[in-house]
């Protein structure tokens, strides 16, 4: 088996995942309280109209047919109309998605920039004070809820010190990044804590490996030994964790976007719950789950690139 077939196999795996995600979301939608037809028409419709709308929504057909119909719509990007905004859900989500993508991407970059060097310091000074300090701070960080970190940063750095905007999104790329820095930092701290913990363990596992001794025996510079031989092997173990953490990152985005009033899909999700905007909730659950599957696929590909043994 070579890398090409391995990748094809991995891609084939993702199709049943998507179908399953669709089924779960469909079932969730069927469990919704209230009758969708009266949600559309209100209480004063004639029987004829109710029958017409029922047929139009496909609700007179059997459940499996409805499921297929729903999945077909999803494939075409058809999620219905938002009850609160009265525009197509797909358009609403496309408008809100960029903010969330920038937020999560930026926070991932910040988390990596924090976690990688700190994990190395902690591992190289294992069980001495730099390690204990770094681990102690991150342990407290892991026990602090994201919304509270956000509120603290918001108060201190934005409201009091005026170093950053209090929230919002701004206009244009520069302002987007500027406005999203604090939310991204908030989100990054808990992610960095998880990453640091895993990477520190991985570095400790690798640093005593024979091949690291052999690299030293070749007379390589310490920086090359760490940066090439240790880091690369340690990252392999951590990359799959990054993939698994994308879900938590998106969950955290729901919270940070609410704290910092970022117009992304996370805030949209919370707003939609209070507005009982079910089509939006349904579509968002689906979109975010698909997003996580794609992130998992991406990390698998990165892992394949880092580790020549994958797929062999």
């Amino acid at each position: 088996m070579n890398k090409g077939t391995w990748l094809l196999g991995r891609l084939a795996q993702i199709v049943p995942s998507f179908v399953f995600i669709g089924i779960v979301v469909f079932v969730l939608a069927r469990l919704l309280p209230g009758d969708p037809v009266s949600a559309v028409l209100g209480d004063h419709a004639t029987d004829a109209t109710v029958a017409r709308i029922t047929a139009q929504l496909g609700l007179d057909r059997s459940i499996p047919v409805q499921l297929l119909h729903f999945l077909g719509g999803v494939v075409q990007g058809e999620f219905g109309t938002s009850i609160a905004y009265r525009i197509p859900v797909s358009r609403l989500i496309l408008e809100r998605l960029p903010a969330t993508l920038i937020l999560t991407g930026l926070s991932m970059a910040i988390a990596l920039a924090l976690a990688v060097p700190l994990a190395f310091i902690a591992a190289l000074k294992a069980n001495r004070w730099p390690d204990l300090l770094i681990r102690g701070v991150f342990q407290v960080g892991l026990s602090t809820p994201i919304f509270y970190v956000g509120l603290l940063l918001l108060t201190v750095l934005a409201a009091w010190a005026h170093l950053f905007p209090v929230g919002g999104y701004g206009e244009g790329w520069g302002e987007h990044l500027w406005h999203l820095f604090l939310p991204a930092l908030t989100l990054a701290l808990s992610f960095a804590a998880v990453l640091m913990r895993s990477l520190r363990g991985a570095v400790l596992d690798v640093i005593n490996a024979e091949f690291v001794d052999f690299a030293r025996a070749k007379g390589l510079r310490a920086r090359l030994v760490l940066g090439r031989h240790v880091l690369r092997n340690a990252l392999i173990a951590t990359v799959s964790l990054v993939g698994l953490q994308v879900g938590s990152l998106l969950g955290g985005a729901v919270i940070t976007e609410s704290v910092f009033a970022v117009p992304g899909v996370g805030r949209l999700m919370v707003e939609s719950i209070f507005a009982r905007d079910y089509p939006v909730i349904q579509a968002l659950t689906l979109v975010l789950a698909v997003f996580v599957s794609l992130a998992l696929l991406a990390t698998d590909i990165v892992q394949m690139w880092l580790d020549p043994r994958v797929g062999k």
């Binding site: 024979e210 091949f211 052999f214 690369r232 092997n233 580790d307 020549p308």
Partner: peptide, 13 residues
Amino acid sequence: FQEPMAALNPVLT
């Protein structure tokens, strides 16, 4: 070294 499998870095050519 004794064990070439352990002494060679598995992820580098």
